[in-house]
């Protein structure tokens, strides 16, 4: 990888180069993974809140003033005509039973228990006058209440935001550690090439010429290390999602957050090798210019 098409002033492979490659690769791997987690969390949070805010539920408690059939009919009529409502569907006994099964177990529980009848209401995107609907239901249909998931919504949203914040903090720490380690390794690599700097300097090279040679060498080193880390991270991410979706996955694994598969995520991950290259490049430039500045 030498655009000039001739041997660079730097040795192509040296012991320090191998160390630097490894360090950059490992740090890129960690950065890619944590970036994956953060972005997944962010997406998950918005999916959860979107999914919930797109729907509300009407609960119908048995009432002495109205027969259950009329109660459902009345409530459906009122809800369906409300502006902003996309669809409304009364859940059947079986639907309710299925929803409650994990908690109550199978069997004929519902026939024995006074389980409320539920109506699932899907909303159109955009603001809907839910408080008005709640009042209308309370006034018009005895035993009807509206559950707009507000409490859930708020809790989920704050949970998602706080875990996203933790994720970003972890990412920032990894970035900081990467910066420090890459700077350290680059400087160690330069130390090994001090003789080259001195000789080329005394032969009459300008500081900028030497800095360019070094920064190009270290930029490619950083990019290569970053790509190795990126590939490893991509394999890990894809592999984990594949395992989770496969039949052998433990029961419930499919409900765990899915890590991959947004193009946005991959665009972000591609930034990692670029950033690694830039860090190595600027460190090399800065260090070489400082070393040269001390020479007459």
């Amino acid at each position: 990888m030498n655009p000039a098409g001739r041997t660079g002033l730097m040795p192509a492979d040296s012991a320090s180069g191998a160390t630097l490659h490894t360090i950059v690769a490992v740090m890129s791997f960690l950065a890619c993974l944590s970036l994956g987690f953060v972005l997944t969390l962010g997406r998950l949070a918005s999916e959860w809140t979107d999914g919930l805010s797109g729907s509300v539920t009407v609960q119908l408690l048995p009432s002495a003033q109205i027969s259950p059939e009329d109660q459902v009919k009345e409530a459906l009529r009122l809800v369906k005509n409300w502006p902003g409502v996309f669809a409304a569907r009364a859940l059947s006994r079986e639907d309710s039973q299925k929803m409650l099964e994990p908690w109550l177990g199978g069997g004929n529980v519902l026939t024995d228990l006074p389980v409320p009848q539920l109506i699932e209401v899907t909303l159109q995107p955009g603001p809907v006058e839910l408080e008005g609907l709640a009042r209308a239901l309370a006034d018009g249909v005895p035993g009807a209440t509206l559950d707009d998931h507000k409490r859930w919504n708020a809790e989920l949203a704050s949970f998602a935001t706080s875990s996203e914040a933790v994720g970003w903090a972890v990412l920032a720490l990894i970035a900081l550690a990467t910066l420090a380690i890459v700077i350290f390794a680059t400087q160690a690599g330069l130390q090994a090439h001090r003789e080259i700097v001195e000789v080329v300097h005394m032969i009459g090279a300008k500081d900028v010429f030497i800095a360019n040679e070094f920064q190009r060498h270290f930029m490619w080193l950083g990019v290569r290390g970053g790509i190795i880390g990126l590939v490893l991270a991509a394999v890990t991410l894809v592999g984990s999602s594949f395992l989770m979706n496969s039949r052998e996955a433990p029961v419930g694994a499919q409900y765990l957050p899915q890590l991959v598969s947004s193009p946005l995520l991959y665009t972000w991950l591609l930034c990692v090798p670029v950033v690694m290259g830039l860090i190595a490049m600027w460190t090399a430039r800065f260090t070489v210019l400082r070393v040269l500045g001390r020479m007459p």
Binding site: T7, L9, M10, P11, E195, V199
Partner: peptide, 10 residues
């Protein structure tokens, strides 16, 4: 003070 990684020509 020759550079070890370069050839004689370089």
């Amino acid at each position: 003070r020759l550079l070890d990684h370069l050839t004689v020509f370089e």
